[in-house]
Amino acid sequence: MATEALGWWGVPLGILAGTLRGSVPFLLVSLGECLTEKSGKINLGLEGTLLFGAMSAYAISYLSSGIVGPTLAPWLGVLAAGVAGMVLGSIHGWLSQQPRVNDVAVGIAMIIFGGGLANFFGKPFIQPQAPHLPTLPIGGWSDLAPVQSALQISPLFLLGVAIVPLMSWFFKSTRWGLYVRAVGDSPDAALAMGISIFWVRMASIVAGSFLAGIGGASLSLFYPGVWTERISSGQGLMAVALVIFARWRPWQCLWASLLFGGAQALGPAFQSVGIDSYYYLFNAAPYILTLVIMIITCSPKRTLAGAPGALGQDS
């Protein structure tokens, strides 16, 4: 079982691997939130959706593996996670569009509600092993086991990457994309165009929650590949924040997610090569890095560049 030591090469490799594994939930949640926010509503509750999705995926994959076999079961799990996300999303979509109801407040309540449901129903699934999603080994060219392992790509990662240009194209070039942007930017104009603001927002929120639910499936069925109550530990909330960082652009969501996923691996990778002090600060690297980049790239003149006009307004 011996593998060869990589030494200092372990750090860039760890970051690369972390980028490919750790970025998937960030990517899917931030894309989902990007779609949601483009329609003019914020869904902070995706942290709860992520948890509920992770639990649903794991539970369904475990329960169905006896019936449909271990190849199909995790895919059923992914589907279940998406549907679970849609259920929570439709609650958020309906409630946050009631008069005088604030979407941020509903989102925070949904974090608690979604997380509570996930933990409540998830108790029996902490211990058993559910079949995981398969991965694509694209590192076969290398003799080094660490390289092969780092280049295990999840199909959900590919799905996320494929959605990026699609979503970009959707917003720019399709009629439905125009509807979403119109509803998000100037609801009055959208109303004049005869678009149902309620249903466009509802659809955007539900679709966004579907993606976030699948992000949860990537946590429990790909990496780290377990269901525990601490599985997300704030990743959903952070992914929502990354959308602002990414200025509501799908491509930038991708870069932000990769940056964040990679930076997560810094602390452990540094310790493994002997830099063993300051690991709390290394573990905080993704947050510090994001803040520094924002301070550098923002300017007071274009605070809201790219921000949907109706964001943060009560309906």
Partner: peptide, 14 residues
């Protein structure tokens, strides 16, 4: 969990 998995992976890399 994510940090634990990263730590295990970086050890395996070493």
């Amino acid at each position: 969990p994510v940090k634990e998995a990263e730590a295990t992976n970086s050890m395996a890399d070493q």
